[in-house]
Simulated scan of single mutants.
Amino acid sequence: MIYTVTFNPSLDYIVSVNNFQLGMTNRTATEMMLPGGKGINVSIVLKNLGLENTALGFAAGFTGDEIQRQVEEIGVTARFIPVDEGISRINLKLQNIEGTEINGQGPAISREKTQQLFEMLDQLQEGDVLVLAGSIPASMPDDIYRNILKRLDGKGILIAVDATGNLLVNVLEYHPFLVKPNNHELGEIFGVELKDRESVIPYAKKMQEMGATNVLVSMAGEGAVLAAADGKVYLAPAPKGKLVNGVGAGDSMVAGFLTGWLKRQDYREAFHMGIATGSASAFSEYLAGREQVEDVYRQVNSEVR
C-alpha cells in the first residue's frame, strides 16, 4: 500500500482576478476550492494514475471536515487524525497575479496527536511506500521527518521525501528512496545558485553522497535532472505547453515518478513519468489526469550521463 502524510493540509481557494488593484474591492473572475497540501496532491495524482493509496495527516474544524470529504469524494482513502482546537488552514492562491499566495497557519498539533500518527506509521509493512511531503505546523518539532525515518529504518519501506532545508537534509542519513528538491531548494542547501541542468548535476550527486538513493530535481521551465541509484544521471528539457496552474506540479512529479518506478522498476521510465505528470498538472486547471499525462509523456526525451 502507498501512504502519504500531509502534516498541514489545507483548503486551497484558487482565484483569478481581472485588473487586480491594491486597496480596492476586487471580485473574482474564476474560483475553485480544492483540498490541498503536498501529500494530498500526491495522493490525488496517484489515484488519477490508477494507484490506490491512503492519505494520512491531521484535520481540524469545519475546514478539516471539508478536506476529508473532498479527498474521499475523489476516491482516496483518508485517515486524518482529528484535532480538537483550531481549524485546518485555508490557502488563498491568486492564480493570475504572478503566483501570489497567502497561506494559513493551521492548528497546533499536540504531542498526543503526533504519537497517534507514529502509531499509524508503525503499522506499515515491508514493501509499503510512504511519501512525506510539505511543511509542518510551527507546533511540531523540526526533526519530525527525521524521527519518522529513524522509527521506520530497516523495515523495508520505500520512502520519498519532498521537503525543504533541514527537514530534508536531516533525513538523508536514513537513505530515503527518493528526495525531490527543486533547483532553488537544492541551491539553498549548498549555498549556490543553480540555473541550468548542467549546474544541478554535481549537487544532486552530493545529496546522494549524503545518503539519498535517488535525487530528482525539478526545474520548472528548465526541465529536470535525476541522479539515480543505478549510477546514471538523467536530464530532460521541459515539455512544451502553456502554464495554466503551477500549484501541485512538483507534487505531481513525485507521484508520476513513483508510478513509473512501481510499475516497471526502471529509472528512465520513472523519470519520464515524473516529468510528464508534473508538466501535465502545470498545463491543467487542477491536477493532471491519466489522459493528460499520456499526451505529455510522448514529448519527453532525456539524455543519460
Rank of each mutant, 00 (worst) to 15 (best):
E126D: 11
A163K: 11
I144M: 13
N147G: 03
G127T: 07
K150Q: 14
D143Q: 05
G127P: 11
M140E: 05
K155W: 01
T164D: 15
R146W: 01
L130C: 12
A133P: 10
G156I: 06
D162Q: 08
R151Y: 13
L132M: 15
D142A: 06
S135D: 07
L158P: 00
R151A: 09
I159K: 01
L167R: 03
V171D: 08
D142Q: 13
I136A: 03
V169P: 01
T164R: 15
L168C: 09
I157M: 13
G127M: 11
D142Y: 06
E173A: 14
N166Q: 15
I148L: 12
L132V: 07
K155A: 02
E126Q: 15
P141D: 13
A138M: 07
M140V: 12
Y145S: 01
L130E: 12
I144E: 04
G134T: 12
S139I: 06
K155I: 02
D162F: 04
K150P: 00
V169M: 14
A133R: 09
P141K: 06
P137S: 08
L132D: 06
L124E: 06
S139K: 10
A160C: 12
S139C: 11
A138P: 06
D153F: 14
L168G: 13
S139M: 10
N147Y: 00
N147E: 14
V129A: 12
P141R: 11
S139R: 09
D153G: 00
L130P: 09
E126F: 02
L130I: 12
I157T: 10
N147W: 00
Q125N: 14
I148S: 03
D142G: 02
G154I: 05
L167S: 15
L168I: 07
A163D: 07
L152C: 11
I144N: 01
G165L: 09
D142L: 04
I144W: 03
I159D: 03
T164V: 14
G154C: 11
A163L: 10
I148D: 03
G154Q: 08
G165C: 06
L124R: 07
S135H: 05
K150D: 08
D153L: 01
D153P: 02
I148H: 05
T164C: 08
L172P: 08
L149D: 00
I144F: 14
M140K: 04
M140H: 05
V129Y: 15
R146C: 07
V171M: 08
R146G: 06
L168K: 08
